[in-house]
């Protein structure tokens, strides 16, 4: 045990800054990136920050690791319960990452893009097509798999008649 003072306070303040910084950077990345894979990366960062914050909540001044036999018996030890929670949370986190990556693979296989704005357009077109409406505010060419409008039979008949006549007269 060393002498405790303002130094230990600054140590824990530095740690809190790191944990909160990771959480905030991860949140910024999740809400502001336009690529789904980068959102997953931001989720990884925010996870690391949350884990650091949890372990930090069990830290005590002058306490050592909760393993018996490596130091004297009367030395205080840090709280083991947050460490156990974080231990399981890390392993769960990698499972969640794998699940997210596989969902991204599925999205990429179906839509061919991972850009959030392009995905939003695709989704709007799909929803409009399923609902049988025209896409909102667009007279553009049919996108997705929307069928072309059916040809007008009367005009077709007139045109074929005209070409027949010109072929006959020439």
């Amino acid at each position: 045990m060393s002498a405790m003072g303002p130094d230990s306070l600054s140590f824990v303040v530095v740690m809190y800054v790191g944990a909160f910084g990771l959480l905030v950077i991860g949140a910024i990345g999740m809400v502001m990136s336009n690529h789904l894979f980068r959102m997953v990366l931001a989720l990884v960062i925010a996870e690391a920050g949350a884990n650091l914050l949890l372990v930090l909540s069990g830290w005590r001044d002058g306490a050592l690791a909760p393993i018996l036999g490596t130091h004297a018996a009367d030395v205080p030890m840090v709280d083991p319960v947050p460490q156990v929670l974080v231990l399981t949370a890390i392993v769960i986190g990698v499972g969640v990452q794998a699940l997210a990556v596989s969902v991204l693979l599925k999205i990429h296989r179906i839509y061919g893009t991972l850009d959030v704005r392009a995905l939003r357009r695709h989704l709007e077109l799909d929803i409009c097509r399923d609902a049988g409406m025209a896409p909102e505010g667009s007279r553009e060419a049919p996108a997705g798999e929307r069928p072309l409008p059916p040809p007008i039979p009367v005009a077709d008949a007139l045109r074929t008649a005209a070409t027949d006549q010109t072929g006959a007269t020439s």
């Binding site: 990884v44 909760p66 596989s102």
Partner: peptide, 25 residues
Amino acid sequence: LHAPDVAMTEAVVGAGLSGVVLALG
């Protein structure tokens, strides 16, 4: 922070396995 178990898990999982999963993706 005196959490050697968590440090081992984070080093193995976070730097190894998670990187492999993301790279395969």
